Measured scan of single mutants.
Amino acid sequence: EPSQADLDALLSAVRDNRLSIEQAVTLLTPSSGGGSGGGSMDAKEILTRFKDGGLDRAAAQALLAGRTPA
C-alpha cells in the first residue's frame, strides 16, 4: 500500500509530466490488473482531475489513499 510520501511523489511526477497518468495508475495498482479498488473514482480519473486542476493535492491524495486496498 502506498504511503502518503509515495502518493505525494507520484502526484508531483504526474503534474510535472515526469510520469504519465497510465504509468501512475500501473504503479498504484500493481497486482489488481489495473482495476479500481472499488472506490467511487478510479485512480486514472483522480489523477486526470488532479492534473487538470479539478482536484487539489490533498484531495487527490485522500482519494487515492482511500481507494487503495489495505
Rank of each mutant, 00 (worst) to 15 (best):
E1S: 13
E1C: 13
P2N: 13
P2I: 14
S3V: 09
S3D: 10
Q4F: 14
Q4H: 14
A5C: 15
A5S: 10
A5P: 14
A5I: 15
A5F: 15
A5Q: 12
D6N: 09
D6K: 08
D6W: 15
D6I: 13
D6Y: 14
L7I: 12
L7K: 02
L7R: 02
L7P: 02
D8F: 07
D8C: 12
D8L: 05
D8M: 06
D8W: 08
D8T: 06
A9W: 15
L10T: 03
L10Q: 00
L10Y: 03
L10G: 01
L10W: 05
L11T: 01
L11S: 00
L11G: 00
S12A: 08
S12I: 11
A13N: 04
A13K: 05
A13Q: 05
A13W: 05
V14E: 00
V14A: 01
V14Q: 01
V14H: 00
R15V: 10
R15H: 10
R15Y: 07
D16L: 04
D16Q: 08
D16S: 07
D16I: 03
D16N: 07
D16C: 07
N17E: 09
N17A: 06
N17K: 08
N17T: 04
N17H: 06
N17D: 08
N17W: 02
R18D: 05
R18Q: 11
R18M: 10
R18H: 11
L19E: 01
L19A: 02
L19H: 01
L19S: 02
L19V: 09
S20N: 04
S20R: 03
I21C: 02
I21F: 02
I21E: 01
I21D: 01
E22P: 04
E22Y: 04
Q23T: 06
Q23P: 01
Q23F: 09
Q23S: 09
A24P: 00
A24V: 05
V25E: 03
V25S: 05
V25L: 11
V25H: 03
V25N: 03
T26N: 13
T26W: 05
T26M: 09
T26Y: 09
T26Q: 15
L27W: 05
L27M: 11
L27D: 03
L28W: 05
T29D: 10
P30E: 11
P30T: 11
P30V: 12
P30A: 14
P30S: 15
S31K: 11
S31H: 12
S31F: 08
S32N: 15
S32A: 09
G33E: 10
G33K: 12
G34P: 14
G35M: 13
G35Q: 08
S36E: 14
G37C: 13
G37S: 09
G37F: 14
G37Y: 11
G37L: 12
G38H: 12
G38F: 11
G38Y: 07
G38V: 14
G39A: 12
G39L: 14
G39S: 13
S40H: 12
S40T: 14
S40V: 12
S40A: 12
M41G: 07
M41A: 06
M41D: 05
D42I: 08
D42V: 06
A43W: 06
A43E: 05
A43P: 10
K44Q: 09
K44H: 11
E45S: 08
E45D: 15
E45W: 04
E45Y: 04
E45L: 05
I46R: 00
I46E: 00
I46W: 02
I46M: 02
L47D: 01
L47N: 00
T48G: 05
T48H: 05
R49W: 04
R49D: 03
F50A: 01
F50H: 02
F50M: 02
F50P: 00
F50V: 02
F50C: 01
K51R: 10
K51M: 09
K51F: 05
K51H: 04
G53P: 00
G53L: 03
G53F: 04
G53C: 04
G54A: 07
L55C: 03
L55V: 03
D56N: 06
D56T: 09
D56I: 03
D56G: 05
D56F: 02
R57D: 04
R57Y: 15
R57Q: 06
R57I: 08
R57K: 14
A58S: 10
A58D: 11
A59V: 07
A59S: 13
A59N: 06
A59E: 11
A60M: 02
A60S: 02
Q61S: 15
A62M: 10
A62Y: 03
A62T: 09
A62K: 13
A62H: 12
L63Y: 04
A65H: 05
A65W: 05
A65R: 10
G66R: 05
G66D: 15
R67M: 15
R67A: 15
R67W: 15
T68A: 07
T68V: 08
T68D: 13
T68W: 11
T68L: 05
P69M: 08
P69W: 02
P69N: 14
P69V: 11
P69F: 02
A70G: 14
A70Q: 04
